[in-house]
Simulated assay, not measured.
Amino acid sequence: MLVDSHCHLDYLQKDGDLEEVVARARRAGVTRMVTICTKLSEFEQVKAIAARYDDVACSVGVHPHEAGAEGVATPEPLIERAQDPLVVGIGETGLDYFYEHSPRAAQALSFRAHIQAARSTGLPLIVHARDADDDTVALLREEHAENGPFPGVIHCFTAGPGLARAALELGLYISLAGIVTFKKAEELRRTVAEVPLDRLLVETDSPYLAPTPNRGKRNEPAFVVHTAAKLAEIKGVSADELAAVTSENFFRLFDKVERPAAA
């Protein structure tokens, strides 16, 4: 059993083969998928996909790329939508200084509102961090110290040990996507080797970042098996143990998601 803790099925839907995508994921042993919201204006479309499949849940949030146009200044719009039974997480949110499609101040304001929503609802915060490690750590620590803890995960983790240590200290989880399989990702693998197994998740972030051996292709939830296999190798455990542990970690963090019935 595997879980794809972060994918974008609404993007895959545009290719017209979502039924086949979900079917392939199921055949690969993926029992749950969380499709991630990046714009409030598209939340209903994301939620409709989750409603269509009993093994798919969704989040509500505004990606840092969209924070300038659609960022939230207060948590209420997120909290309201998070009451829906299909919503199991808050985000994705965070800071992205690589592209800077939105002003940094707008990203930070929206990020803080998402943290407040996660704290209020108890749903996990789904954090995007790219080329913004120091500011991400500072903001997370400040919110934690001043306003209290909140559950969450650094998704598609590609940063160094500083962000990893800070996330773990704050009680957050770390999720790995296909980049960990790339030939040039040795530094990332060294960082991941130091992360406790009980704090790791796996994801695809599909349709992006397809893992080796599918690099360069459109990514999809079925491909999470390759990321999981690499992670098992890094941690020195069997593929079955890695799948069991990361799935258990997922259900512990995303505790609004119903577990599959026992076989």
Rank of each mutant, 00 (worst) to 15 (best):
E169M: 09
K14N: 09
R119W: 12
I115A: 04
R32F: 01
V202N: 02
A222K: 08
D205Q: 02
N219V: 08
G178V: 06
R218Y: 10
C58H: 08
G162E: 15
T31V: 15
A193Q: 14
G160S: 11
A25N: 07
L95S: 09
K256A: 11
P77K: 10
L209S: 00
I49E: 03
A222S: 15
R26Y: 08
L172N: 01
R81C: 05
F111H: 10
L172M: 12
P221H: 11
A263M: 04
K39N: 12
G29E: 04
A129H: 05
T181H: 05
R259Y: 01
D55K: 03
G94A: 11
V60R: 01
E80Q: 14
H114S: 13
Y99H: 15
M1I: 13
R130Y: 10
R119A: 11
R165F: 09
L188K: 07
V56A: 05
D84G: 07
I126E: 09
R165N: 14
E203C: 03
V88Q: 00
P64W: 13
P221M: 09
A222V: 08
E203L: 03
E142V: 00
H155N: 04
S120I: 12
P207D: 05
L40F: 10
F250S: 04
L209P: 00
P196Y: 02
Q45S: 13
N214I: 11
C37Y: 02
R130A: 11
L140Y: 03
A166W: 08
C156N: 03
D10F: 04
A222C: 07
D255M: 00
R119L: 12
P161T: 14
I115T: 09
S175H: 02
S110D: 10
P161I: 15
N219P: 06
F98D: 15
K39R: 15
F157S: 02
I49N: 03
G148T: 08
P77Q: 08
R165G: 04
I49K: 02
L78I: 07
L253C: 02
V46H: 06
R52L: 09
P207A: 06
R130D: 11
V202R: 01
A164K: 06
E248K: 11
T93N: 09
